[in-house]
Amino acid sequence: MNNLLIPSSTALRVGTRALLRLSSTSAANSNRIWIGRSAFRTQSPARIRKLTRDFCSRSVPDVRRLAETARITLTPEEIEEVGPKIQQVLDWFGQLQAVDLENVEPAIRADTEGDNLRDDVPEVFENREAIIAAIPSYEEPYIKVPKVLNKE
């Protein structure tokens, strides 16, 4: 729920997340298409472009299904409102797909400048009380949630 409602630090992340939700609305292979460029490695550039074009052109966002996947409840008005916004994000990505990448080596990640690693040294977070205080339903020492027995 946080994912969709709380603005992320960059526009790109918003876009990625929106697409992520969308991927579940389309055919099974869309899941593979959107796992990142690395998944394209075995595909020819022409094939990739065709797949992504297909994806962007066919999708009219099924907001109801998206909301279900994200486990959020939307009113009919909200569905009305969100639909075109998501379509807009899709259109941006449609534009990105038009870029000619014929001679570009696929990259695993966009930002590959150096490692950003941490030593295995413990540091206790000091404001634990604030975290605990923000938990909607807490019964010392556990977080209380509605009973769920099955995953998925």
């Binding site: 939700r21 899941n31 796992i35 990640r109």
Partner: peptide
């Protein structure tokens, strides 16, 4: 719905 973790660089 796997997708690359945007907050972590490659290993």
């Amino acid at each position: 719905r796997y997708f690359p973790e945007p907050d972590l660089p490659e290993v």
